[in-house]
Simulated scan of single mutants.
Amino acid sequence: MSADQPSEVLDSAAAAGADAVAIRSDGRRDYLRALRAWDRDARRGILWCHGLVPSLATSGHPDRIVHLHQDPRGRAQRLAAAVARRGALATLVPSSDMSRRIRGSRSHANWTAELPVLVGDGARSQDVGYLGRISTDKGVDVLARAMKHLEPTARLVLGGDSRYVSDEDLRAVEEDLTRLGPRVVRLGHVTPADLFAQVGVVVFPSVWPEPFGLVAAEAMAAGVPYVVSDAGALPEVAGPEHPWVARAGDVDDLAAVVTRALAATPEEVRLVTDRARQRWEDEFSPRAGRMRVERLLTDLGVG
């Protein structure tokens, strides 16, 4: 069930063979009313509410699972989240780190599609990759400044865009990227596999408390070397044995960790990436996700 416009969610559900219900509405407020009416009059079985909006729309209704993917920001969102959780069977969040901030929630990790494991076919690239929102909370400005400490031939290969980024935030990022001149390669929208194949290491330098780290999990699936900051759940996703973790917001430390990852021997890289791929299979693969859903429903007595 989703709003009829935009239609991406409905199209994806239909392509996967799922039954899809279009909630016809004119704007968010109308969507909230229409969804609440549908849930009251037509819904049967358990409703899994992905995100704050459907959870708030169906607040107080029985047999619901509230699944929050982001920390509520500001007083209004915190109040909305409290209302949205009323009557829910459970409140799920994507990491133990986030569950410590959302009282009474339980960790339910995300999972990713399977990606082809990259196989090295020659000299390893010294280029550094990033995939995600081009913003300061994601630490792109920190990464750009860290690049100044790397070999001058190393390029920063950026995938993603600046949608939903304020003009002030965007200016701050662009100032640091501009200083790198031709060392910045902008790919725009690109698949994770395409970006991973072009770089020697991919970096996730967030400075805000990441609730999960989906692209980091995709890097684990692809067997590509990666560096994370210690912000939020990123170290939790990477696992306690991952060697390349930098202090969030620390330019010098990030540069040192990226340099160490790029200088790793083929044997060291294989050890780290094989271990990461196994962790992905155990924790973040589609199979692991299905098993986690089955356990949840059994625990809730609705499996």
Rank of each mutant, 00 (worst) to 15 (best):
R106D: 06
R78E: 13
S99Q: 12
R75W: 15
R103A: 11
A84Y: 06
A123N: 02
P94M: 10
R86E: 13
G122W: 02
S107K: 09
H108Q: 11
A113F: 07
L115A: 04
R78S: 08
G104Y: 07
R101H: 09
G122F: 02
G74S: 08
D121A: 14
S96F: 14
S99N: 05
P116N: 03
D121T: 15
Q77D: 10
R100M: 08
A109F: 12
A123L: 11
R73Y: 12
E114I: 11
R85D: 12
A84E: 10
V93Y: 04
A76G: 07
G74K: 03
N110P: 00
Q77M: 07
L115E: 02
A123Q: 14
L92K: 02
A90L: 08
L79W: 14
A80Y: 05
E114D: 14
R103M: 04
R86T: 15
R73V: 14
Q77N: 04
V117Q: 11
S99K: 04
D121P: 01
A80H: 07
L79R: 14
P72V: 06
I102W: 06
R101Q: 13
V119H: 10
G122E: 04
L79Y: 05
V117F: 04
R75N: 12
L115C: 03
G120Y: 05
P72W: 03
R75Y: 13
R106P: 01
A90H: 00
R106S: 08
S95L: 09
R100H: 11
G120K: 03
R78F: 01
S105V: 06
G74D: 11
V83L: 13
D97K: 09
P116V: 04
A90N: 06
A81V: 03
A109Y: 15
D97W: 11
N110L: 12
H108V: 03
P116A: 05
V83R: 07
R103T: 12
D97I: 08
M98P: 04
G104Q: 06
P116C: 05
G120F: 04
P116H: 08
L92H: 01
A84P: 12
L89T: 05
A109P: 14
R86N: 08
L89I: 10
G74I: 06
L115R: 01
G87S: 09
D97N: 10
L79I: 15
V117A: 11
G120D: 15
S95D: 13
S107I: 05
T91P: 12
G87D: 09
W111N: 05
W111V: 05
A90G: 02
T112Y: 00
V93H: 03
A82G: 15
S99Y: 03
A80W: 09
G87L: 07
M98R: 09
P116W: 02
L92S: 02
S107L: 08
S107C: 10
L115K: 01
R85M: 10
A88N: 02
L118S: 00
R100A: 10
A82H: 13
L79H: 10
D97C: 12
R78D: 05
V93D: 08
G74M: 11
V93T: 09
R86M: 12
V117T: 13
R101C: 02
D121K: 05
A82P: 02
S95Q: 11
